[in-house]
Amino acid sequence: MTTEQEARDAIHHAFGETAHVDIETFPAGNLSITITRGKHAATIDGHPESGWGWTVDPGEDDGFSGHENVATTLDEALVNVRAALI
């Protein structure tokens, strides 16, 4: 399971101090992560056992429609999000 602190550490490693991060942890261990950098934002939702979905600059109506992009690991999702935000 990825804890909130492990997620924060991974995000800090990927972005340094250049992004604002909000993380919500759910009882089953799923995480919902919002990363904001400048005028852009990304959401990453997932769990280490089921994978991670991510979207950069989601529309207001996209909140519960799922993610077109998926990654096996949180680190993989962060690499892709970082490439899109920088």
Rank of each mutant, 00 (worst) to 15 (best):
E17L: 12
T72S: 07
T72Q: 07
T55E: 09
I44H: 01
G51K: 09
P27S: 05
E60S: 12
G51P: 02
T43E: 12
T18W: 02
T25F: 04
T43G: 08
H12Y: 11
D9A: 08
D22Y: 04
H13R: 15
T43L: 11
D45H: 10
G16M: 08
I35N: 02
L78E: 01
S32M: 08
F15I: 04
A19N: 06
F26K: 12
H67I: 00
G29Y: 01
G59E: 04
G66P: 06
A14N: 04
H12S: 10
D45E: 15
E49R: 08
V21R: 06
P58L: 13
G59D: 06
E6D: 08
G53H: 10
I35S: 00
I44M: 00
H20M: 13
D22A: 13
H12A: 11
D62T: 14
Q5I: 05
T18S: 15
E24L: 08
H13G: 01
I44D: 02
S65V: 12
I33T: 04
A28W: 15
A14H: 03
G66Y: 07
N80A: 15
H20C: 03
A41T: 06
G16E: 02
T3Y: 01
P48G: 02
D45N: 15
H67W: 13
G53E: 05
H40P: 05
L74A: 03
T34K: 11
A77H: 05
G53A: 06
E76L: 08
V70N: 08
T43I: 09
E17C: 08
I33Q: 06
G38N: 11
N80T: 07
E4M: 05
A71Q: 05
I33K: 09
W52D: 04
E17S: 14
H12E: 10
D45Q: 14
G29N: 03
A42S: 09
A41H: 12
H40K: 14
P48R: 06
F15K: 08
V70T: 11
H20W: 01
D57I: 03
E17P: 03
H67L: 00
T34S: 10
A71D: 03
P58Y: 15
A71R: 03
V70F: 02
V79M: 13
R37C: 01
G63V: 06
N80G: 05
I23Y: 05
E49T: 07
E60P: 01
G38I: 10
T55N: 10
A14T: 13
E68C: 08
V79C: 02
F64P: 00
I33F: 07
T55K: 14
E76K: 12
A71C: 12
H40F: 09
E49L: 15
D75F: 02
H13L: 10
A77W: 04
L31A: 01
P58N: 11
D62F: 11
S50I: 13
E76V: 11
E24C: 03
A10R: 09
A7P: 10
